[in-house]
Amino acid sequence: MDVENTVRAAVLDHFGVERAQVDSASLTFLGLEPVEILRIPGDGAVHYATLGGSRHPMGDPTDLLADPVRGPRAELVLTLLMSADSQVGVAKSLGVLVASPAVEGVVLQADALLDLGEPLWRNAKFTAVVLGESDIDPIELPDPAEPVRYLSVTPVTATEAAWVRVRGAQALRDAWAEAGIDVRDPERGAVNL
């Protein structure tokens, strides 16, 4: 089963781009297969989509034998309104996040709060992210494998991360909507909570 090429074709089709229009970076973590980060130009935005996180299903790290086929599979997508000059470090951060199931046993799912403890890109005020549902349709794989789901990545400030820990991710999304905050804007301030 060629999961990576199936996922690549689906995500490029979703954004309506050809492979030649997309830049990519490859990251390797000790003991893991490489992870690729696609940089997809959009209408006034840049989309970063991971490839490689869904090669293997996520599972409980305490299981003695991991199921090589069954289990949830996830990739990440981050959309930012930013110039190419300010994107240094985004690929590395996304690589660390998408590799966290294999490295730390984390299961990537909507409403999860993940904290890197360092800026997500050069000069960013965000060190954590909240995952959510994305508008990329689940990518079907041959049975019995579960579909690959793309999860949206939303950068959050330390204050917003604390809010998620106390009130939950949906409460933060509601506060953003009420304040009219565009979470794709890398220069945005924290919502007043």
Rank of each mutant, 00 (worst) to 15 (best):
V106L: 09
H56S: 13
L78G: 05
G105R: 00
G59S: 03
L94D: 08
L65S: 10
V98P: 12
E104T: 05
L108F: 10
G59D: 04
V88R: 14
L64C: 06
M58L: 05
G53D: 11
R55C: 06
P57V: 05
D63I: 02
V69I: 05
A91K: 07
G59K: 02
G59W: 00
L64T: 13
L108D: 09
D67K: 03
S86V: 01
G53N: 09
S93A: 12
G105V: 00
S83L: 03
P72R: 03
R70E: 14
T79F: 01
T79I: 10
V96R: 15
A74Y: 04
S54M: 06
Q109G: 13
G95E: 14
L94E: 07
D60I: 02
D63H: 07
A66T: 07
S86F: 00
S83Y: 00
L80H: 02
V106C: 01
S93H: 12
K92M: 11
V90W: 01
V107S: 12
R55F: 07
D63F: 05
A91Q: 09
V88S: 15
M82V: 06
G59H: 02
L81Y: 04
L97S: 05
A102H: 12
T62P: 00
M58Y: 10
L80V: 07
G71H: 06
A102M: 13
P57T: 04
G53K: 11
D60W: 01
P101Q: 03
S93G: 06
E75C: 15
V96I: 14
V90A: 01
S54P: 07
A74V: 08
V77W: 02
K92V: 06
L97H: 04
L76V: 12
T62Y: 10
A99L: 09
H56V: 13
G89A: 01
V96F: 09
V96A: 13
A66V: 06
R55H: 10
H56C: 09
E104Y: 13
T79V: 10
V107I: 12
D63K: 07
L97Q: 08
L64F: 11
G105Y: 05
G89K: 01
V88I: 12
D60N: 15
M82T: 10
S100M: 14
V106I: 12
R73S: 10
V69L: 12
L76W: 14
G89N: 04
A74W: 04
K92Q: 15
A110G: 13
A84E: 14
K92I: 07
V96Q: 14
G53I: 11
D63M: 08
S100G: 14
V103C: 03
L94N: 10
P72V: 03
V77F: 08
S83E: 03
A99I: 09
L80S: 04
